[in-house]
Amino acid sequence: MTEDYTRVAAADELEPGNGMGVVVDGIEVALFNVDGEFHAMSNRCPHQRAPLCKVGEKKINGEKCWNENRGGFTDQPAVTCPWHLWEIGLETGEHEASGKKIGVFDVKVEDGDVLVAI
């Protein structure tokens, strides 16, 4: 139902390959744009509470590192945490090697707006 959803951003605010941090009902949510598809999950990594929304942030002198940006996305599909590269399933919120899990949230795009259901 539309009333369960909260508008968190305009779809064109978030570039593909990046994350954005938003707060919904006092809860930190990481919103991701993966090749034009939006995903949302709890913003704090189940490992050591890194802010997952920082995925895709350009590193200091990133052009001189193997990967230019912090963390990233895999085909699993998963988000790779910007701190220690744990891969967390975008649909499950689960990190396979540890079995640790965080919440994932439904997302939809309507009239150019991104909405998240908490």
């Binding site: 590193k59 990133g62 790779t80 590269l85």
Partner: peptide, 12 residues
């Protein structure tokens, strides 16, 4: 996952 990413995970 990132190959030789470990030395510069945060930048340089």
């Amino acid at each position: 996952p990132g190959g030789n990413e470990g030395l510069f995970t945060q930048g340089r």
